[in-house]
């Protein structure tokens, strides 16, 4: 813009005083940078303090946890015995095992349902497809706490209370709408020329999906898979409502309800258990952060 206004030379030649303003701009920049770093450091301390404190507690012996005289943010004699105890606890291993089975099933079901549906909704205009796409988005907005009571009745009627298969049945309500929604966005962004070329070469719909759409939209599929994984790993309302038997509990409700027993809590073990339970999503996040964030922001920016 400035170049257009002053085609003859540098803008500072043409506008007197601009040089000085750029100087003050620079000091303003430096000041802004300091504010930014100070804010970010404070925010990082606040954001990371709770998990850090959980880690510190998990490395303390019960005696050190109960000792009120010292600084709670310090560990004097770090120990891994809480981790050994919690991993040696067969009930906790059971929770972990249940969570893994549950999550693997839910992620597989979710991805099959949403990839097919998104392909149909993005590419094959059919009667009611627009309404259905809007419906998918609306169901994404329905929170689980609105539906858990009727679902409790329905799951109970099917005899699936106190079973992880009841959870496998209802978890797709949490994952399918959003995954379908972001997959529609990814599929719709694939150029039409690609499928026309495939059609001319005689590909059928199925080949088109597996040979073109899935490979091209792979980042979207990874993002959706990560979303489905984190949501089913962290789900809390449904297992809390449907499962009361410890041997069928997944990690979230298991750690919260079964490791807290009696008046004297084994805080060290409890925190160790919570951290181990939180580890899988954190690992996925650490390695696939870009996909994770793409999935997070895709809901509002795509589709």
């Amino acid at each position: 813009m400035s170049a257009a206004a002053h085609p003859s030379g540098r803008p500072s030649d043409a506008v007197p005083g601009l040089g000085r303003r750029i100087g003050s701009l620079r000091s303003e920049r430096r000041w802004a940078l300091w504010t930014a770093y100070i804010s970010l450091i404070i925010a990082a301390i606040v954001m990371l303090a709770p998990p850090l404190y959980m880690l510190l507690t998990s490395m303390k012996t019960s005696a050190e946890v109960a000792d009120l005289s010292g600084n709670p943010w310090m560990v004097h004699a770090p120990t891994w015995e809480n981790y050994a105890a919690i991993i040696g606890n067969p009930m906790f291993r059971g929770f972990f095992y249940n969570s893994i089975i549950l999550t693997v099933c839910v992620v597989a079901i979710t991805m099959v349902i949403s990839v097919f549906a998104a392909f149909a909704l993005a590419r094959m205009k059919f009667f009611g497809s627009q309404v259905l796409a809007t419906g998918v988005f609306l169901t994404y907005l329905v929170p689980d706490t609105l539906l858990f009571i009727p679902l409790y009745q329905i799951v109970g009627g099917l005899g699936l209370l106190n079973s992880i298969w009841g959870l496998v049945l209802v978890y797709p309500t949490l994952t399918v709408p959003f995954c379908t929604w972001i997959m529609i966005g990814y599929f719709a962004s694939i150029p039409k020329e690609l499928d026309e070329a495939a059609l001319i070469d005689g590909a059928n719909w199925m080949q088109m999906l597996t040979k073109i759409f899935i490979p091209v939209a792979l980042p979207g599929i990874i993002a959706a898979t990560i979303f489905a994984f984190t949501v089913s790993w962290a789900a809390f309302v449904y297992p809390t409502a449907f499962i009361t038997r410890p041997d069928e509990m997944p990690l979230t409700i298991g750690v919260v309800s079964q490791l807290i027993r009696g008046d004297t809590f084994a805080w060290g073990q409890l925190m160790a258990g919570a951290l181990i339970a939180a580890l899988p999503p954190v690992i996925v996040y650490a390695f696939l952060m870009d996909y994770y964030i793409a999935g997070l922001t895709a809901g509002a920016t795509k589709g």
């Binding site: 709770p50 998990p51 962290a234 979230t252 750690v255 919260v256 939180a278």
Partner: peptide
């Protein structure tokens, strides 16, 4: 670093 709270299942971080 700042996204870590969002990644931990809330039931577990609330325990902390």
């Amino acid at each position: 670093m700042l996204l870590v709270p969002w990644v931990i299942p809330p039931a577990l971080s609330t325990l902390g």
